[in-house]
Amino acid sequence: MKLVFKSISLFALIISLVACSSDDDTQKDEQKPTISINYSNGFPQVCDELKRGETYNFRALVTDNQELASYSIDIHHNFDHHTHDDQEGTCELEPKKDPVNPLIYMENFSIEGAKTEYEINIPITIPADADTGNYHCAYSVTDQTGWQARTSVDIKIVE
């Protein structure tokens, strides 16, 4: 019985030692990056209408506590109303329809130079023959550790 209690106390001691020491022994990155279009140059904003044939600069601010790694921009149609954005304002959707030649934009980029702040600024031309209607634009960013942040916004492509 004594041995049992001895072993238990030893075990409890090890646990408490580990529990106390685990806070300060490493430089583990436990923070996600951030991503935002909510600033004056952020683009697109909720319900922005993008004209076919025009070129727009897609801009978003990303930050991280240590080192930003990559980002991606994904524009896809929302003709079937399958999703919605995470912005404050809501965007009135046009009636559902079937796609014929929808714009699909999927590109990945890397952020060089161990930055902790960066402005995404990518010119994208809306093809002249793309279907008009509801679209969804999603930004995502990763840091070197592998944490990810995402944001998305509902937009429209018009004539």
Binding site: A69, S70, Y71, S72, I73, D74, M106, E107, N108, S110, A138, S140, T142, D143, Q144, T145, G146, W147, Q148
Partner: peptide, 11 residues
């Protein structure tokens, strides 16, 4: 393991 890279806009 989540890497810092993207493939077709997915991590």
């Amino acid at each position: 393991n989540p890497t810092p890279d993207y493939y077709e806009t997915q991590q």
